[in-house]
Nucleic acid binder design. Structure first.
Length: 151
DNA sequence: TAGGCCATCTGGTCCT
DNA sequence: AGGACCAGATGGCCTA
């Protein structure tokens, strides 16, 4: 529960507050002031709700473009971010390889052997513990430390 | 029933 | 001053 001790100058006053300044406060902490504070709080709540809705819309758009192999369940926000990161890293790797191998034929032949055996390789010393990332590790062979090293 | 995920409210901080 | 952003708290819903 808050109090309007801050010189009544205004802004932190919200509905349900009590004034501890005694008699001199009566006029200043008017119901009008309280009403304004309550209105501002409600407006801030509405803005925050809209902001979070915008954020969720963005997450939904991201879910649509991120691969969801074999997942019938909607990805959580955390999973979506991890998956997006993995996806971007994989695409980046593919682009880098495409640049490295000058001809398309070379690049295609590289991936014909590469995709089957190795594309979702796991790293030998990598543990899949609680601190690991099961989603990223399951898909695309993404590992945070590699990303950090690259960036 | 516990745990995970989420939406909402709220107060603080930063920026314009 | 007001808005945007952030993080903590809280309560609801769902699933194993």
């Amino acid at each position: 529960m808050k109090t309007c001790q801050s010189s009544h100058s205004d802004s932190g006053v919200e509905s349900g507050v009590q004034c501890r300044s005694g008699a001199g406060c009566v006029g200043k902490c008017s119901s009008e002031r309280m009403e304004n504070a309550a209105k501002r709080r409600l407006a801030a709540n509405a803005r925050e709700r809209r902001r979070m809705q915008g954020l969720n819309t963005a997450f939904d758009r991201l879910r649509k473009v991120v691969p969801q192999w074999g997942q019938d369940k909607k990805l959580s926000k955390y999973e979506t971010l991890q998956m997006a990161l993995s996806y971007i890293m994989a695409l980046t790797r593919i682009l880098a390889e495409a640049e490295r191998y000058s001809t398309e034929r070379e690049w295609i032949s590289l991936h014909c052997e590469h995709f089957h055996a190795q594309s979702y390789h796991h790293y030998p010393g990598q543990k899949l513990g609680a601190d690991g990332d099961p989603y990223a590790q399951r898909v695309l062979g993404y590992h945070p430390e590699h990303f950090q090293a690259a960036s």
